[in-house]
Amino acid sequence: MTDAEQEIVLLSLRVALLAVGASLAPGIGIGWLLARWRHPLRPLLQGLVMLPLVLPPVVTGYLLLFALGRSRPLGEAWHALTGGRIAFTTGACVIAAAVVGFPLLVEAIRISMLAVDPRLEQVSRSLGRGPFHTFFRVTLPLSLPGVAAGAVLSFARALGEFGATIVLAGNVAGETRTIPIAVYTLLNVRGGEAAAVRLVLVSVLLALGALLVSFWLSTREPRS
């Protein structure tokens, strides 16, 4: 691999890690809401969270651009706050990857929290522990394998993100050119095929590794 290719792989890894890192806390919160919240609005929330899974990624990217573009309220607020922009930066790659990987993360967390016996939470409350302590000492530890599996899965999804990224972040070498975008670019260049194949290989290995880790995690029981 050339230095340029290594840089592309490192950028991809960094984007995917940041995307998962940023979605972990909200993913746990929403996963818990979807597992435990009894409210007529819950299906709507679930639908919104799942939407990026079924929307064409290009559409997701367009919607994000629509919300975060320079002339939009959110983009403007960001500009006023930092003097920078969101679209067409590494940050945009992270946002696109996070949004597209979010349903996988939330669904894994939701399912593992559903499997936690709510009576354990009741016992915790009756032993004098409030809802926060109960969540962090009972619910979360018991659903940790699912949280980890979901994180790995959404990490793998983030590595492969193309459609939303190309719309929201474009194709800026060294800044937004992740593995899939680089492969697409190389395939359109005469003589780029060898480099494309090397990146494809790395891509396959990373994805397979992540899947194996996620399978292993989801079959593990919480420590005892």
Partner: peptide, 22 residues
């Protein structure tokens, strides 16, 4: 008063021990 402030400890038919703790 929420359950944690009532100081009434519940013991159920299944012991409901926390499986992630010894």
């Amino acid at each position: 008063q929420p359950p944690e402030r009532r100081h009434l400890a519940l013991v159920t038919q299944d012991a409901l021990l926390f499986p992630h703790r010894d």
